[in-house]
């Protein structure tokens, strides 16, 4: 019982929450780019699954985790491009085209796995990187600065995306296209070009999220993501389309999961209640949003294809 408040358990809980947040963080930051430019992509989970298989298979064959991550990037770029063709050029209904990508990714990643791998074999994991100096700080060092390399990359995406969206010319165009594509177009911004770019960024990060998940778990399996891609989409709304908010959502989801697991491990949550306890991350996320009572508005052009007025 009292085991919950030992430092070791506290460290593990926080570190575990951070690990669980990483794939969600990659995927939601990517989805955020698309939505800021006005495109809802429901296919994230499918891209993640294909990225996960690609990353897993590459590491299995080459023993190089970075090469695996790179393949995740490649698969993400291709599927981002496919999404862009569907949503931007062909102006497909955004609530549905993504479901096609999801079902395709779910089936095709499993099919490739069964054809090329068969029984799950373990692969190498990411190297653990202890940040020199920082990792020696008591408590904080173990919780924050003693993770596998990919964790730092994920969190580096937050300031990077903040910078891109708020400080760069490209970011300004993304916002303009998402809020008022007609005006952006009249100022000579290529609405389609910007949306292609954001969807490719989104696809890339979803592919990376999948590859990172598979490599971190050192394994691939049918439906490895277990619908994490959908959670990632929800977290974009939770984060009100802002990188810090999205990070907060991913961390909240990860932490609640991690805390529930620790409570189960310590026997504080009885086994007969384990299903009820497993609802906690979802319920807390909804309640948090209710309490915060957001005043943020989605990008005005979200889900609306752009058609230039004549």
């Amino acid at each position: 019982m009292s085991g919950l408040f030992t430092e070791a358990v506290l460290v593990a809980t926080i570190a575990g929450g951070i690990r669980l947040a990483v794939p969600l963080l990659f995927a939601s930051i990517g989805e955020m780019f698309g939505q800021r430019s006005g495109v809802l992509n429901l296919g994230v989970d499918g891209v993640m699954l294909l990225g996960a298989f690609g990353g897993y298979y590459t590491v299995l064959k080459t023993d190089n985790v970075w090469f695996g991550l790179l393949v995740g990037v490649g698969i993400g770029v291709v599927l981002g491009l496919v999404t862009a063709v569907m949503s931007v050029t062909l102006k497909a209904e955004q609530g549905i085209s993504g479901i096609g990508v999801f079902l395709f990714g779910l089936g095709f990643s499993d099919l490739l796995f069964q054809m090329w791998v068969g029984t799950p074999l373990p692969i190498q994991a990411f190297p653990k990187v202890e940040i020199p100096g920082l990792s020696n700080i008591p408590f904080l060092g173990e919780t924050l600065f003693s993770h596998s390399a990919v964790v730092y990359i994920a969190f580096a995406m937050v300031p990077l995306s903040m910078f891109i969206i708020n400080q760069t010319n490209f970011g300004m165009k993304i916002r303009a296209v998402g809020e008022n594509p007609e005006a952006a177009d009249s100022l000579g911004v290529s609405v389609a070009g910007i949306r292609y770019a954001t969807l490719i960024i989104g696809g890339t990060l979803a592919g990376v999220a999948g590859a990172a998940l598979a490599i971190d778990l050192k394994i691939f399996q049918s439906n490895l993501t277990n619908a994490a891609g959908f959670i990632a989409i929800a977290l974009v709304y939770f984060g009100a389309w802002r990188p810090l908010g999205v990070m907060g959502g991913a961390l909240l989801y990860g932490f609640v999961n991690s805390i529930v697991l620790q409570l189960k491990t310590q026997g504080i949550i009885p086994r007969s209640w384990s299903d009820i306890a497993a609802m906690a991350p979802a319920v807390v996320t909804i309640l948090a949003l209710v309490v915060v009572a957001h005043r943020f508005k989605p990008p005005a052009a979200l889900t609306k294809p752009f058609e230039r007025a004549r």
Partner: peptide
Amino acid sequence: VPSALILALNGLVVIFLVSSDR
């Protein structure tokens, strides 16, 4: 064939139908 193929095919049909709507 592995049943995963059917799911992939299901997804492809959705993708092509929705893309062709325009």
